[in-house]
C-alpha cells in the first residue's frame, strides 16, 4: 500500500498545490472552529464576539492588502457605516438581526463601490490618501447626520428575534450566530483568495504591467477586490453593532482604520491566520489592559514597533517561514 502511495507521490512531485486546501490548513480550520465553539464557556461571551468581529474585519482588510496589494487607510468607513445602518435598521425599522446586518453590509458594499471606483485610479501612497480622505468625509457625515446621533451614537440597539423566531437576548445564544457569520465570512475570504479570481489578483499584485500586457483590465479586478473587502468589513461592523447594542463614532474614526492595519501587520499580512491572530492579540490587550487607560495606546504602539522590527512578516508570517507551510 505504502509503496503505491510513494510511487504516485514521486510521479507527481508538487501537484499538491492544485488540489485545493492543503491538509494542514484543513486541520487548522477544524481546530480553530473547535476552539471558537469552546471559547464563550471560558471567557465572557461579549468579549469573544468582539474578537470574532475584529478577526473578520482584519481578514477583510487583509484580502485587500495582502492579496490585492492595495493599502487602504480608510476601512473604518465601511466598518462604521455598516454598523450605523445596521443599528438604525434594528432600532428604528425593527428589522430582525439577520436583515439588519444584511442592510448594513449592503451599505458598506455600495460605499466601497463608490469610493473604490475613484481610489483605484491612483496607486501607492496616493491610493492610501484618497481612501483616507473619503473615510474622513464619512466620519464627518456620521458626526453631522441626524440618524447617527452625533456624539451619542445609536444607543440601546435592540437585538430582535432571529428570523423573527429565535430570541437572541442571551449573549451565549447570540455568540453562536456571530460565530456562524464570522467563521463563514473568513472561509469565504479564504475561498476568494484561492479562486480563479484570486490567482489573477496575485498576478496583478506581483507584476501589474505584465498582467496588463496579458490582456487583463486590472482596474476591474482591483475594484472588485475593493468592493469585496469593503463588504466583509461592513459585515464585521454591522455584526459588532448588534453585539454591543451600539453604533458610535469610534467605529468610523480614523484610529479604527489604523487599528485594522496594525492587527493585520502584527499577525502577518497575506497569510490566512495572521489577521485572526493579530485581531485576537490587539482586542485582548485592549480588554485586559483597559485599567491602564490611555497607556493601552502606548503599549499597543510599542508592541507594534517591536513586532515590525523583529518580525516584519508578522507572527504567522514568521511561523509560516519556519514551518515552510502556508498558514
Amino acid at each position: 500500500m505504502s509503496t503505491t502511495e510513494n510511487t504516485t507521490k514521486a510521479a507527481l512531485p508538487a501537484m499538491t498545490h492544485t488540489v485545493g486546501m492543503p491538509r494542514h490548513q484543513k486541520i487548522i480550520f477544524v481546530v480553530l472552529l473547535a476552539v471558537l465553539i469552546a471559547l464563550p464557556f471560558m471567557v465572557y461571551p461579549v468579549f469573544a464576539m468582539k474578537v470574532l468581529c475584529f478577526a473578520l474585519f482584519a481578514c477583510a482588510f487583509n484580502l485587500l492588502l495582502g492579496f490585492g496589494g492595495l493599502l487602504s487607510f480608510g476601512h473604518a468607513a465601511y466598518f462604521g457605516m455598516a454598523s450605523y445602518v445596521c443599528a438604525h435598521a434594528a432600532k428604528v425599522w425593527g428589522l430582525t438581526p439577520e436583515l439588519a446586518i444584511l442592510t448594513g453590509t449592503a451599505t458598506a458594499a455600495v460605499l466601497g463601490l463608490v469610493i473604490g471606483s475613484l481610489a483605484i485610479r491612483r496607486q501607492g501612497i496616493y491610493f492610501a490618501m484618497v481612501t483616507l480622505a473619503f473615510a474622513q468625509m464619512v466620519y464627518f457625515f456620521a458626526l453631522q447626520a441626524e440618524f447617527t446621533g452625533g456624539e451619542d451614537g445609536i444607543q440601546s440597539v435592540p437585538r430582535n428575534d432571529l428570523f423573527g423566531l429565535l430570541p437572541m437576548k442571551d449573549d451565549l445564544t447570540f455568540y453562536f450566530f456571530v460565530l456562524a457569520i464570522t467563521y463563514g465570512g473568513i472561509l469565504f475570504i479564504y475561498r476568494i483568495t484561492h479562486s480563479p479570481f484570486g490567482q489573477v489578483l496575485k498576478s496583478i499584485r506581483e507584476n501589474e504591467p505584465r498582467a496588463v500586457s496579458l490582456g487583463y483590465h486590472v482596474n476591474r479586478y482591483k475594484l472588485m477586490v475593493f468592493v469585496l473587502s469593503a463588504t466583509f468589513a461592513g459585515l464585521a461592523g454591522a455584526t459588532k453593532s448588534q453585539v454591543f447594542h451600539l453604533a458610535s463614532l469610534t467605529d468610523v474614526h480614523w484610529t479604527m482604520s489604523g487599528e485594522v492595519v496594525l492587527m493585520t501587520l502584527l499577525g502577518g499580512m497575506g497569510t490566512v491566520l495572521g489577521p485572526i491572530v493579530g485581531a485576537a492579540i490587539v482586542v485582548t490587550m485592549q480588554n485586559y489592559l483597559a485599567y491602564l487607560g490611555a497607556w493601552v495606546t502606548v503599549i499597543q504602539g510599542c508592541i507594534f514597533v517591536i513586532g515590525v522590527l523583529l518580525f516584519r512578516e508578522g507572527i504567522i508570517g514568521v511561523l509560516s517561514r519556519i514551518l515552510k507551510k502556508p498558514l
Binding site: V200, K202, Y216, L228
Partner: peptide, 28 residues
C-alpha cells in the same frame, strides 16, 4: 509573477483567454 509557480504563471495567460478570471466564489 514571482510568487506563482511556473505552471501558474502560464495558467494566468490561459485563464484570460477562457474568461473565468472573475469567478471569486469558485475553487481554484
Amino acid at each position: 509573477f514571482d510568487d506563482l509557480t511556473v505552471l501558474e504563471n502560464v495558467r494566468i495567460a490561459m485563464q484570460r483567454r477562457r474568461g473565468d478570471s472573475y469567478d471569486f466564489w469558485r475553487s481554484e
